[in-house]
Design a protein around this nucleic acid. Sequence first.
DNA 1: CGGTTCTTTGACGAGATTCAATGCCGGTGG
DNA 2: CCACCGGCATTGAATCTCGTCAAAGAACCG
Lengths: 242, 242
Amino acid sequence: MISDVSPFRQLVAKLRRLAPIDEADEAAVLALPHRVGRARARDYLIREGSKPHECCALIDGYAARSKLGVNGGRQIVSFHIPGDILDIQHLFLERADHNVQVISDATLVWVPMAAMRALATQRPTIGTAFWRDALIDASIFREWVLNVGRRDAKTRIAHMLCEFIVRRAAAGLGTAEQTQLPFSQEEIGDATGLTSVHVNRMLRELAEAGLIVRKGRSLEIVDWDGFRRAAGFDAAYLHLAA
Amino acid sequence: MISDVSPFRQLVAKLRRLAPIDEADEAAVLALPHRVGRARARDYLIREGSKPHECCALIDGYAARSKLGVNGGRQIVSFHIPGDILDIQHLFLERADHNVQVISDATLVWVPMAAMRALATQRPTIGTAFWRDALIDASIFREWVLNVGRRDAKTRIAHMLCEFIVRRAAAGLGTAEQTQLPFSQEEIGDATGLTSVHVNRMLRELAEAGLIVRKGRSLEIVDWDGFRRAAGFDAAYLHLAA
DNA sequence: CGGTTCTTTGACGAGATTCAATGCCGGTGG
DNA sequence: CCACCGGCATTGAATCTCGTCAAAGAACCG
């Protein structure tokens, strides 16, 4: 399929939200050597222990980072939306310390790591955008430690969903009430440190409280303010204002 | 007290472990404008919501990053040792999204943020070291999400202590058997998402298993291999080899 | 349609929290 | 030097949240 839209459109939009990049910066991104790829739900993009030589960014679909516990249990440590760079850490770290998987069918753009590194150094504003992106990622991980460590199951699930919706909205991908959340209950469990069984029970309670509606396998928020309040969600840690 | 040792000695050593910095790089660090400060156990260095204009690094003592839950519960998200930069994130993010507290009496060096930022851009190798430091921090946060989300209480505590000991050893601050761990049981609980009561019970079991010895308020590992095995600890995520 | 994946529900058990009381240690001041 | 005090550590009992196991039902896919 030949498209008149650059595979870097979402990425450029994201970088623009992170730093005041100019036209030369944008041109440099668009000129990056690359290939576009597709992946199907559950495909691995990066495996723990590997040494990635390409950097990939999401064009369409959703992805998750995860680690495996000794008992075989999976812990998802973050979710990603179109425009996100999925492995900026390998600009400066050789070996992957976690897995990256898509959780829906997805389209991706792959760029040689060396080209990304060169871009970051030759275009300082883009370098700053990369820095901010990595630091915001770290802030999100900290919030997840708090989420999993100190919130009860219902609040925990709601908080994780709030974050996803707010990030999605900030990327111009739809408001809370419009968003169909793409997670299975098992994925929600793996992200919150709960079992899918318990996630199911909590979702039922959230539905009984009139905050969400479950339609088949996906769910929607119907009372955003109430939901946000139930989650105790404060978006400050996302550092959305540039 | 006038000292012939630079307040940047530990920091330079750390940067050297992260990237091949040369003598000019080192000279640039040593020439940084700065002031040395002291703090007492439990003092705050950075408060959530503030806008730091100085960057601080630990010279002596220990520190922790923490966030507060709605119910008032504290979640510690990382511990820090001498040489660590405590707020590299504020090079590119305006507002603090978490607290930084010292957990023992400590000595610190403060550098204007603008000077640190200039150092990172004018000395590319130091910039790389900063990048690696930030990315390794993020890797540690990911491991903590897994730790708190998917490991049982005893393993969780052991894992967190293993990490601390290994990082300390990597900084040349003593081996496992020599190390007197400086944590109260409440701090261990806040770091692992447990109550101090339950931490107490788990420490007793670890002691009964002959892995640790508790002396008054501090504790020591007596069987490092066994302890490491009990924790299921694999140091890969610390990215120690440069 | 047939198989697979995901959801739902119940009964039971385990692990962690809560509450409350006691003991220990180090520091401070009389 | 001793008495007191505050911060931690320790312990037990009762409780509760969440996990485990198991089975059945619903939605989606080719």
